[in-house]
Nucleic acid binder design. Structure first.
Length: 416
RNA sequence: GCCCCCAUCGACUAGCGGUCCAGGUCGCGGCCCUUUCAAGGCCGUAGCACGGGUUCGAAUCCCGUUGGGGGCACCA
């Protein structure tokens, strides 16, 4: 994988990186991380650390230390001089340009696209070394592929037009060509390049939105690849075991956030309760919520089946961690039920979901209310919302004291 | 303008000449379950871009059209 250190990792690049990683792990090869920093003017200081943090979070581990393209500046310079000496390149206003052939064509067998052939007359003499001595990407990149013994170059389809240029350079120095595979782009719902206006695009944003890395990886793997058309949920090991570069589709895929949400929900529900609670605690901590970890752990089982992303937790279970402000209009004339519920719960022993449910159902019957009519005002009063985790479990967790004060305040508001 | 790439339900895809009046998943609609919301179960909706070939036979092969994407930097 060869990102340029210009900012946060884009999800489209991650998908490409994932294909590289899956391929390398499946084949028992190595996955290398190279930072392409020959454009010093666009470099962002923290980018390298951020890129590595994102890859680690996703579990895409690379082999050996990461390398910097600019470190090969002198080596590139030497090769360029050699090419000039051989007449294969020439100086041009302080820069060095490669002499592209004018006739014939340059082609390769792309693993995902098949044979690609480009007429040489459409390829310009490209700059190898800038007038300030720094090599360009199109020169340094193939050179590094050769020096690092890269066997497979798996990259985005935007590099297709660079490939014949890089092939010509590698041929000029008499080295062996790597295998090329150009994977399709990832587009937004409108078919255009995935960008901010479509939603989250950087790994950090997905993390902040509460997606699980294993769900994101599973989803991304299916963007342009499928093992058989039937299997959808696949753990990391299964993805590695079944991944096949040749089965990657050549047509671009649209990023479907709704399907990602569904898949993330599947992964969250499949987590052991303790692990789910742990993830919640971590996420809350990373996102500025200073909530009691023990209470979070107790609330976790109540929400595990009901939310699709960790970030939904605060809105859904926040009533356990702070005051609520129910909308009087939503109490829906439940004054009698609210007051009676408070009375019933006041002396209830033990105070458990089971006994709470029995008490409230008994009251509903007394008042001749349907469950829905009876419980909804109570839910609004206690949780501050018409949508919440299970009512009785929520009340038990909230505790008698807070529940009674909320019920009484709401009863008063409903009566007013 | 030139070069390259792509084309199956709204989306992701299976399909690599007959077993496809096209299968799976998401979404969407309906029903069931139900204290809300979800989850879960059942049922349903919807597609081979178009036109020519090749062939006994085409979603599958070839050509063209149309549509979409990418690239034409001393960016990567």
């Amino acid at each position: 994988m060869a990102p340029s250190p210009t900012g946060l990792l884009h999800i489209g690049n991650v998908r490409t990186a994932l294909f590289n990683w899956l391929f390398a792990r499946h084949e028992g090869g190595e996955f290398k991380l190279r930072i392409e920093n020959t454009d010093t003017s666009r470099e962002v200081a923290e980018a390298v650390d951020q890129i590595q943090a994102s890859l680690r979070w996703l579990g895409l581990d690379w082999d050996g230390a990461h390398t910097f393209q600019l470190d090969r500046m002198d080596d590139c310079r030497r090769v360029a001089d050699q090419l000039v000496a051989e007449g294969k390149a020439y100086e041009d206003e302080g820069a060095i340009r490669f002499r592209m052939p004018d006739e014939g064509s340059t082609g390769w067998d792309d693993v995902v696209r098949g044979r690609v052939e480009v007429p040489n007359e459409t390829i310009e003499d490209l700059v190898l070394v800038r007038s300030d001595g720094r090599p360009t990407y199109n020169f340094a990149s193939p050179m590094e592929d050769v020096w690092d013994g890269i066997t497979h170059v798996i990259r985005g389809e935007d590099h297709i037009s660079n490939t014949p240029k890089q092939i010509q350079i590698i041929r000029a120095i008499g080295a062996e060509l790597p295998v090329y595979a150009h994977v399709p782009n990832v587009a937004g719902a409108d078919g255009k390049k995935l960008s901010k206006r479509h939603g989250a695009v950087t790994v950090e944003e997905f993390r902040k939105d509460g997606y699980l890395p294993e769900a994101l990886v599973n989803f991304l793997a299916l963007l342009g690849w499928a093992p058989d058309g039937e299997t959808t949920i696949m753990a990391r090991e299964e993805l590695v075991a079944r991944f096949d570069l040749a089965r990657v589709s050549p047509s671009p895929a649209q990023f479907d956030y709704a399907k990602l949400d569904w898949m993330n929900g599947m992964y969250m529900r499949a987590l052991p309760a303790a692990e789910f609670a742990h993830r919640l605690v971590i996420w809350l901590g990373e996102n500025g919520y200073d909530w009691d970890a023990e209470l979070v752990a107790k609330a976790a089982p109540l929400v595990q089946e009901k939310i699709a992303r960790l970030a939904e937790f605060p809105a859904f279970a926040g009533f356990l961690f702070g005051d609520v402000a129910p909308d009087a209009a939503e109490l829906d004339g439940g004054g009698a039920m609210l007051a009676a519920a408070a009375d019933r719960l006041a002396g209830l022993e033990p105070f458990t979901a089971e006994t709470i449910e029995a008490a409230l159902r008994a009251e509903a019957e007394t008042l001749e209310l349907k469950p829905r009519q009876a419980f909804q005002p109570v839910r609004v009063a206690v949780t501050g919302s018409r949508v919440s985790p299970g009512l009785f479990e929520s009340i038990e967790l909230l505790g008698r004291e807070a529940t009674l004060s909320r019920l009484r305040a709401a009863a008063a508001a409903a009566a007013a």
